[in-house]
Design a protein around this nucleic acid. Structure first.
Lengths: 214, 214
DNA sequence: ACCTGAACACCGTTCAAGT
DNA sequence: ACCTGAACACCGTTCAAGT
């Protein structure tokens, strides 16, 4: 059974199995993935260059399963469109919490994922942000979504004080569970960020109007 | 040389060497660390429970080297104190970019790190945030600092479009380098978040005052 | 073209043996 | 108490051999 008549593997099958493995909670790895696929680890290298490309394939698979470039979203007024976008990104992370630590440190190259970010860039350009600011704002929004996702993915709790504290220990004892707090923190952040972006833009426009009026 | 008269290792030495290894850019690992310490990997297990405890030791070492509980900071008006705190956290991450991916998914238990977060909690309590909101706000701020740090630590660039894009490709070509953008995104975020916290608090107070006046 | 098998240089962790 | 050495079950990747 050296070479099967029809290939056992495709990048699609690899990506699916990889996502399954990641969502299962078991540690992700090339060997573990090969086991799941009923194949030898070396076989995978006929289809991908290695571990990182597999993870990038998973980013693509999952990006395709959330509708980041929906026409409905782009038809919304931009502040709402951005809100929808961030909520979708957040949902992607919370529904696949183990994926985030794997993709967070990897350059985004997958086409679908790039298209999603390109859609966000388009929203901001159309909203009227100057070119110099678009990537900065995107980086801010992405940092927020990423950080919020990591918070959510955190095991049990983010903080576990072992000794005395002035307030932290008490607050943790009486507080809502971590994920509920994570939801509230996200809602707070989204409100704050979007309204700050609106301010940025009206300040700009008013400033320009004032200068024109001079 | 089975048992030396004076121990070759201490948790302090382990933490220092681990931070050196991390900052060197080589992949972090127990075996690589043991090599650096001139010792067998199994020797480390006389002092720590394993890889995760070593990383938590590094968190402690580095937290001690940034003055998170400085009296000066706590003497500032709370919005400035929070700004200083976030700047310090960010500086810690940018000065040790390889550390962040290691600690981001680990529960914080180290005393000094907990003390830093406890200091932040104290700032918020003193500022007048109700108990129910303190952890939520902390989680928001921490998510932001974490995400911003990851952005900064990203290899080369965050996005690398391989095909056509509506705007993203063009923006990336003309834009300032990634780390400069990361700085601007952080500055923007810090301004937005702190002013939003001020709004939260004055709304509350005004609301309370209005209700009292009724 | 695509899978296997063997090989390589790694991991993190355990544990008996030695002083 | 604290280090070594051997062992274990893993990693990710390369490459010649087979069809």
């Amino acid at each position: 059974m050296a070479r099967p008549k029809s290939p056992l593997l495709t990048t699609g099958l690899i990506a699916h199995a990889a996502l399954e493995l990641i969502d299962s909670g078991e540690p992700f790895g090339v060997n573990a993935l090969a086991r799941r696929l009923g194949v030898r680890p070396s076989s995978l290298y006929n289809h991908v260059s290695g571990r990182e490309e597999i993870i990038e394939l998973v980013r693509g698979l999952i990006s395709r399963s959330y509708d980041f470039t929906s026409a409905d979203v782009h038809a919304l007024p931009w502040p709402e469109a951005i809100e929808e976008y961030l909520r979708l990104e957040r949902r992607m992370y919370t529904e696949h919490p183990n994926l985030l630590p794997l993709i967070a440190t990897l350059t985004v190259t997958d086409d679908t994922a790039i298209a999603a970010y390109d859609g966000l860039a388009t929203m901001l350009v159309r909203a009227g942000f100057p070119d110099d600011d678009v990537l900065v704002v995107m980086q801010l929004l992405d940092a927020f979504a990423l950080g919020a996702g990591l918070d959510y993915a955190a095991p049990g709790d983010i903080w576990r004080p072992l000794g005395e504290t002035a307030h932290l220990g008490r607050l943790l004892e009486t507080a809502a569970p971590g994920r509920e707090r994570s939801d509230r923190a996200f809602e707070l952040g989204i409100r704050v960020l979007v309204s700050a972006l609106q301010d940025m833009l009206t300040e700009r426009t008013q400033g320009a109007a004032a200068r024109t009026a001079d």
